[in-house]
Design a protein around this nucleic acid. Structure first.
Length: 316
DNA sequence: AATTAGGATTACC
DNA sequence: GGTAATCCTAATT
Protein backbone atom coordinates (compact mmCIF):
# COMPACT_ATOMS: atom_id res chain seq x y z
CA UNK A 1 0.00 0.00 0.00
CA UNK A 2 0.94 3.60 -0.04
CA UNK A 3 4.10 3.72 1.89
CA UNK A 4 5.49 6.54 -0.06
CA UNK A 5 6.52 9.36 2.18
CA UNK A 6 8.69 7.88 4.85
CA UNK A 7 8.73 10.33 7.60
CA UNK A 8 12.14 11.66 7.47
CA UNK A 9 12.01 14.24 10.18
CA UNK A 10 15.25 15.82 9.21
CA UNK A 11 17.10 13.15 11.00
CA UNK A 12 20.53 13.68 9.64
CA UNK A 13 20.92 16.69 11.82
CA UNK A 14 20.24 15.49 15.28
CA UNK A 15 20.44 17.94 18.00
CA UNK A 16 22.60 16.86 20.81
CA UNK A 17 21.47 17.05 24.37
CA UNK A 18 24.98 16.89 25.44
CA UNK A 19 26.72 18.18 28.44
CA UNK A 20 30.07 17.68 26.89
CA UNK A 21 32.78 15.73 28.60
CA UNK A 22 32.43 15.32 32.28
CA UNK A 23 34.79 17.42 34.18
CA UNK A 24 38.27 17.77 33.08
CA UNK A 25 38.69 20.50 30.63
CA UNK A 26 35.82 22.74 31.25
CA UNK A 27 32.80 20.88 32.22
CA UNK A 28 30.04 22.31 34.19
CA UNK A 29 30.57 25.07 36.59
CA UNK A 30 27.69 26.18 38.62
CA UNK A 31 29.69 28.58 40.56
CA UNK A 32 31.64 30.77 38.33
CA UNK A 33 34.95 30.61 39.99
CA UNK A 34 36.85 33.75 40.16
CA UNK A 35 40.36 33.80 38.97
CA UNK A 36 41.83 31.23 41.16
CA UNK A 37 41.33 30.09 44.62
CA UNK A 38 44.80 29.46 45.80
CA UNK A 39 45.00 28.33 49.34
CA UNK A 40 47.21 30.68 51.20
CA UNK A 41 48.14 28.06 53.69
CA UNK A 42 48.89 25.70 55.49
CA UNK A 43 46.85 23.20 57.35
CA UNK A 44 46.94 21.20 54.25
CA UNK A 45 50.09 21.62 52.41
CA UNK A 46 48.45 20.33 49.38
CA UNK A 47 48.56 22.07 46.06
CA UNK A 48 45.18 22.23 44.53
CA UNK A 49 42.11 20.50 45.54
CA UNK A 50 39.44 21.55 43.26
CA UNK A 51 36.00 21.87 44.69
CA UNK A 52 34.16 22.78 41.61
CA UNK A 53 30.80 22.60 43.20
CA UNK A 54 31.20 24.05 46.52
CA UNK A 55 33.00 27.09 45.47
CA UNK A 56 32.17 30.60 46.26
CA UNK A 57 31.41 33.15 43.78
CA UNK A 58 33.96 35.86 44.03
CA UNK A 59 33.52 38.99 46.06
CA UNK A 60 33.00 37.24 49.32
CA UNK A 61 29.34 36.78 48.61
CA UNK A 62 28.38 33.26 49.37
CA UNK A 63 26.74 31.48 46.58
CA UNK A 64 23.93 29.95 48.50
CA UNK A 65 22.30 28.69 45.40
CA UNK A 66 25.34 26.66 44.68
CA UNK A 67 25.23 25.11 48.03
CA UNK A 68 21.64 24.18 47.87
CA UNK A 69 22.21 22.84 44.44
CA UNK A 70 24.95 20.57 45.59
CA UNK A 71 22.91 19.69 48.56
CA UNK A 72 19.90 18.89 46.53
CA UNK A 73 21.98 16.71 44.33
CA UNK A 74 23.56 14.98 47.23
CA UNK A 75 20.34 14.24 48.92
CA UNK A 76 18.07 12.28 46.68
CA UNK A 77 19.72 8.95 47.05
CA UNK A 78 19.67 9.08 50.78
CA UNK A 79 18.24 12.11 52.38
CA UNK A 80 19.08 12.84 55.93
CA UNK A 81 15.90 12.30 57.72
CA UNK A 82 13.83 10.68 55.11
CA UNK A 83 13.59 6.96 55.64
CA UNK A 84 11.88 6.33 52.37
CA UNK A 85 13.42 8.60 49.83
CA UNK A 86 11.06 9.18 47.03
CA UNK A 87 13.08 9.54 43.89
CA UNK A 88 12.52 12.45 41.60
CA UNK A 89 11.21 10.12 39.06
CA UNK A 90 9.35 10.46 35.89
CA UNK A 91 5.75 9.75 36.36
CA UNK A 92 4.92 6.42 34.86
CA UNK A 93 1.69 7.81 33.65
CA UNK A 94 0.58 8.51 30.14
CA UNK A 95 2.73 9.56 27.28
CA UNK A 96 1.62 12.76 25.69
CA UNK A 97 3.76 13.12 22.61
CA UNK A 98 4.85 16.69 23.06
CA UNK A 99 6.17 15.92 26.46
CA UNK A 100 9.33 14.45 25.10
CA UNK A 101 11.27 17.62 25.56
CA UNK A 102 10.45 17.71 29.22
CA UNK A 103 11.33 14.08 29.58
CA UNK A 104 14.63 14.72 27.95
CA UNK A 105 15.30 17.40 30.47
CA UNK A 106 14.35 15.17 33.35
CA UNK A 107 16.51 12.46 31.96
CA UNK A 108 19.34 14.91 31.61
CA UNK A 109 18.76 16.11 35.12
CA UNK A 110 19.15 12.61 36.40
CA UNK A 111 22.47 12.34 34.62
CA UNK A 112 23.59 15.61 36.05
CA UNK A 113 22.55 14.57 39.51
CA UNK A 114 24.61 11.43 39.26
CA UNK A 115 27.54 13.45 38.13
CA UNK A 116 27.15 15.98 40.88
CA UNK A 117 26.79 13.33 43.54
CA UNK A 118 29.87 11.59 42.26
CA UNK A 119 31.81 14.79 42.29
CA UNK A 120 30.69 15.74 45.76
CA UNK A 121 31.56 12.34 47.12
CA UNK A 122 34.91 12.40 45.49
CA UNK A 123 35.63 15.81 46.94
CA UNK A 124 34.53 14.79 50.39
CA UNK A 125 36.69 11.75 50.04
CA UNK A 126 39.72 13.77 49.12
CA UNK A 127 39.18 16.07 52.03
CA UNK A 128 38.89 13.11 54.38
CA UNK A 129 42.22 11.78 53.29
CA UNK A 130 43.72 15.18 53.45
CA UNK A 131 42.52 15.92 56.94
CA UNK A 132 42.75 12.37 58.08
CA UNK A 133 39.23 12.34 59.37
CA UNK A 134 36.33 9.98 58.90
CA UNK A 135 33.74 10.82 56.32
CA UNK A 136 30.96 10.54 58.82
CA UNK A 137 30.80 13.65 61.01
CA UNK A 138 29.22 11.57 63.75
CA UNK A 139 32.54 9.94 64.32
CA UNK A 140 34.55 13.08 64.73
CA UNK A 141 36.14 14.15 67.95
CA UNK A 142 36.80 17.77 68.77
CA UNK A 143 40.04 17.84 66.90
CA UNK A 144 38.42 16.42 63.82
CA UNK A 145 35.70 18.99 64.01
CA UNK A 146 38.29 21.68 64.36
CA UNK A 147 40.15 20.46 61.31
CA UNK A 148 36.98 20.32 59.34
CA UNK A 149 36.12 23.85 60.37
CA UNK A 150 39.52 25.11 59.34
CA UNK A 151 39.14 23.35 56.06
CA UNK A 152 35.74 24.84 55.51
CA UNK A 153 37.06 28.26 56.37
CA UNK A 154 39.71 27.80 53.81
CA UNK A 155 37.26 26.50 51.31
CA UNK A 156 34.85 29.34 51.57
CA UNK A 157 37.39 31.89 52.60
CA UNK A 158 35.55 32.56 55.76
CA UNK A 159 36.84 34.54 58.65
CA UNK A 160 37.86 32.73 61.80
CA UNK A 161 34.71 30.79 62.18
CA UNK A 162 36.22 27.83 63.90
CA UNK A 163 36.49 29.72 67.15
CA UNK A 164 32.75 29.99 67.28
CA UNK A 165 32.34 26.25 67.26
CA UNK A 166 34.92 25.29 69.80
CA UNK A 167 34.97 22.17 71.83
CA UNK A 168 32.31 20.43 69.85
CA UNK A 169 32.42 16.82 68.89
CA UNK A 170 31.03 15.58 65.66
CA UNK A 171 28.06 14.23 67.49
CA UNK A 172 27.40 17.63 69.02
CA UNK A 173 27.71 19.23 65.67
CA UNK A 174 25.25 16.84 64.10
CA UNK A 175 22.71 17.35 66.81
CA UNK A 176 22.64 21.06 66.19
CA UNK A 177 19.89 22.58 64.15
CA UNK A 178 20.34 25.18 61.51
CA UNK A 179 19.12 27.72 64.04
CA UNK A 180 21.83 26.63 66.44
CA UNK A 181 24.39 27.24 63.75
CA UNK A 182 22.99 30.63 63.02
CA UNK A 183 23.07 31.46 66.67
CA UNK A 184 26.79 30.93 66.71
CA UNK A 185 27.37 32.71 63.48
CA UNK A 186 24.54 34.77 62.17
CA UNK A 187 26.41 35.39 59.00
CA UNK A 188 27.75 31.99 58.08
CA UNK A 189 25.91 29.57 60.30
CA UNK A 190 23.46 28.58 57.66
CA UNK A 191 26.04 27.80 55.07
CA UNK A 192 28.16 25.92 57.53
CA UNK A 193 25.11 23.91 58.39
CA UNK A 194 24.46 23.28 54.73
CA UNK A 195 28.02 22.19 54.22
CA UNK A 196 27.83 19.81 57.13
CA UNK A 197 24.63 18.50 55.62
CA UNK A 198 26.45 17.67 52.44
CA UNK A 199 29.03 15.76 54.39
CA UNK A 200 26.44 13.82 56.27
CA UNK A 201 24.65 12.95 53.08
CA UNK A 202 27.90 11.93 51.50
CA UNK A 203 28.73 9.69 54.42
CA UNK A 204 25.31 8.13 54.26
CA UNK A 205 25.65 7.38 50.60
CA UNK A 206 29.17 6.19 50.66
CA UNK A 207 28.50 2.50 50.80
CA UNK A 208 26.12 2.55 47.90
CA UNK A 209 28.39 4.52 45.64
CA UNK A 210 29.54 4.30 43.03
CA UNK A 211 26.81 2.22 41.52
CA UNK A 212 28.16 -0.55 39.35
CA UNK A 213 27.29 1.17 36.17
CA UNK A 214 29.11 4.31 37.13
CA UNK A 215 32.55 3.61 35.86
CA UNK A 216 31.99 0.57 33.75
CA UNK A 217 33.05 0.26 30.22
CA UNK A 218 29.73 0.83 28.62
CA UNK A 219 29.10 3.96 30.53
CA UNK A 220 28.63 7.00 28.46
CA UNK A 221 25.78 8.16 30.55
CA UNK A 222 27.24 11.59 30.88
CA UNK A 223 26.46 12.39 27.40
CA UNK A 224 23.55 11.79 25.15
CA UNK A 225 25.79 12.20 22.17
CA UNK A 226 26.39 9.02 20.27
CA UNK A 227 30.10 9.28 20.94
CA UNK A 228 30.34 5.57 20.64
CA UNK A 229 26.81 4.71 19.80
CA UNK A 230 25.24 2.94 22.69
CA UNK A 231 23.52 -0.34 22.07
CA UNK A 232 20.03 -1.01 23.15
CA UNK A 233 21.03 -3.87 25.38
CA UNK A 234 23.58 -1.64 27.09
CA UNK A 235 20.97 0.99 27.58
CA UNK A 236 18.59 -1.48 29.15
CA UNK A 237 21.32 -2.65 31.48
CA UNK A 238 21.95 0.93 32.39
CA UNK A 239 18.37 1.47 33.37
CA UNK A 240 18.28 -1.78 35.28
CA UNK A 241 21.33 -0.74 37.24
CA UNK A 242 19.59 2.35 38.41
CA UNK A 243 16.56 0.88 40.12
CA UNK A 244 16.35 3.96 42.20
CA UNK A 245 15.33 5.96 39.20
CA UNK A 246 13.82 3.50 36.81
CA UNK A 247 12.39 0.54 38.67
CA UNK A 248 8.98 1.87 37.88
CA UNK A 249 9.50 1.24 34.20
CA UNK A 250 12.01 -1.61 34.09
CA UNK A 251 13.26 -3.96 36.77
CA UNK A 252 14.97 -7.24 37.41
CA UNK A 253 12.84 -10.29 37.86
CA UNK A 254 15.88 -12.40 38.51
CA UNK A 255 19.08 -10.49 38.41
CA UNK A 256 21.29 -13.56 38.60
CA UNK A 257 19.68 -15.07 35.58
CA UNK A 258 19.45 -11.74 33.84
CA UNK A 259 15.70 -11.85 33.62
CA UNK A 260 14.02 -8.50 33.57
CA UNK A 261 10.62 -7.07 32.98
CA UNK A 262 9.62 -3.94 31.21
CA UNK A 263 6.92 -2.51 33.39
CA UNK A 264 6.15 0.54 31.35
CA UNK A 265 6.92 -0.13 27.73
CA UNK A 266 6.00 3.34 26.54
CA UNK A 267 8.21 4.93 29.13
CA UNK A 268 11.22 2.79 28.34
CA UNK A 269 10.74 3.47 24.67
CA UNK A 270 10.58 7.16 25.35
CA UNK A 271 13.81 7.05 27.30
CA UNK A 272 15.45 5.10 24.52
CA UNK A 273 14.19 7.63 22.01
CA UNK A 274 15.61 10.41 24.08
CA UNK A 275 18.95 8.73 24.32
CA UNK A 276 19.12 8.16 20.60
CA UNK A 277 17.42 11.35 19.64
CA UNK A 278 14.63 9.49 17.94
CA UNK A 279 11.48 11.23 19.07
CA UNK A 280 9.34 8.78 17.14
CA UNK A 281 10.63 5.79 19.05
CA UNK A 282 7.98 3.53 20.50
CA UNK A 283 7.80 0.12 22.01
CA UNK A 284 6.89 -1.48 18.73
CA UNK A 285 10.18 -0.42 17.26
CA UNK A 286 12.18 -0.92 20.42
CA UNK A 287 10.91 -4.45 20.80
CA UNK A 288 11.79 -5.17 17.19
CA UNK A 289 15.34 -4.22 18.02
CA UNK A 290 15.28 -6.46 21.04
CA UNK A 291 14.10 -9.31 18.85
CA UNK A 292 17.11 -8.78 16.64
CA UNK A 293 19.12 -9.85 19.66
CA UNK A 294 17.55 -13.28 19.65
CA UNK A 295 19.60 -14.41 16.72
CA UNK A 296 22.73 -12.78 18.07
CA UNK A 297 22.39 -14.42 21.42
CA UNK A 298 22.35 -11.27 23.45
CA UNK A 299 18.80 -11.28 24.72
CA UNK A 300 16.19 -13.98 24.56
CA UNK A 301 12.82 -14.80 25.90
CA UNK A 302 12.99 -16.70 29.16
CA UNK A 303 12.04 -20.35 29.21
CA UNK A 304 8.58 -19.55 30.35
CA UNK A 305 7.67 -16.75 28.07
CA UNK A 306 5.82 -13.90 29.65
CA UNK A 307 4.71 -10.61 28.28
CA UNK A 308 7.34 -7.90 28.47
CA UNK A 309 9.80 -10.20 30.14
CA UNK A 310 13.19 -10.79 28.58
CA UNK A 311 16.43 -12.35 29.59
CA UNK A 312 20.04 -11.47 28.99
CA UNK A 313 21.77 -14.51 27.62
CA UNK A 314 24.95 -13.55 29.41
CA UNK A 315 23.99 -12.13 32.74
CA UNK A 316 26.72 -10.49 34.73
C1' DA B 1 -5.43 -3.58 23.07
C1' DA B 2 -1.16 -4.68 23.45
C1' DT B 3 2.31 -7.74 22.68
C1' DT B 4 5.06 -11.03 19.96
C1' DA B 5 7.47 -12.68 15.93
C1' DG B 6 10.00 -11.89 12.02
C1' DG B 7 10.53 -10.18 6.92
C1' DA B 8 11.73 -6.16 4.21
C1' DT B 9 13.55 -1.68 3.50
C1' DT B 10 15.99 2.30 4.67
C1' DA B 11 19.26 5.12 7.35
C1' DC B 12 23.39 5.88 9.70
C1' DC B 13 27.94 5.02 11.59
C1' DG C 1 28.68 -4.37 6.82
C1' DG C 2 26.63 -4.01 11.39
C1' DT C 3 23.08 -1.96 14.15
C1' DA C 4 18.99 0.29 14.49
C1' DA C 5 14.82 2.65 12.82
C1' DT C 6 10.89 2.15 10.31
C1' DC C 7 7.10 -0.29 8.36
C1' DC C 8 4.40 -4.10 7.85
C1' DT C 9 1.57 -8.57 8.33
C1' DA C 10 0.03 -12.17 11.07
C1' DA C 11 -0.48 -14.62 15.21
C1' DT C 12 -1.00 -14.68 20.19
C1' DT C 13 -2.44 -13.18 24.73
Amino acid sequence: MGSSGHDHMGSTERSCLCLSPPYDGDGIRWAEETEDIKPSHSLLGVPDLSWPLVCLTGNGGLAREDLSMAEAAALPAQGLGSPEPSPPILSPAQNPPIEVQGKAEEYCLEQVQSMVVGEVLSDVNKACKLLNIAPDPQEWNCMHVYKWLLWTEHLYRLPQISTLFKELSGRDLCSMTEADFRERSSQFGDMLYAHLDIWRSAAAMKDQWPPEDFKSANDNSWCNCPSQPIHLWQFLRELLHKPHNYSRCIRWINKEKGIFKIEDSAHVARLWGIRKNRPAMNYDKLSRSIRQYYKKGIIRKPDVSRRLVYQFVNPI
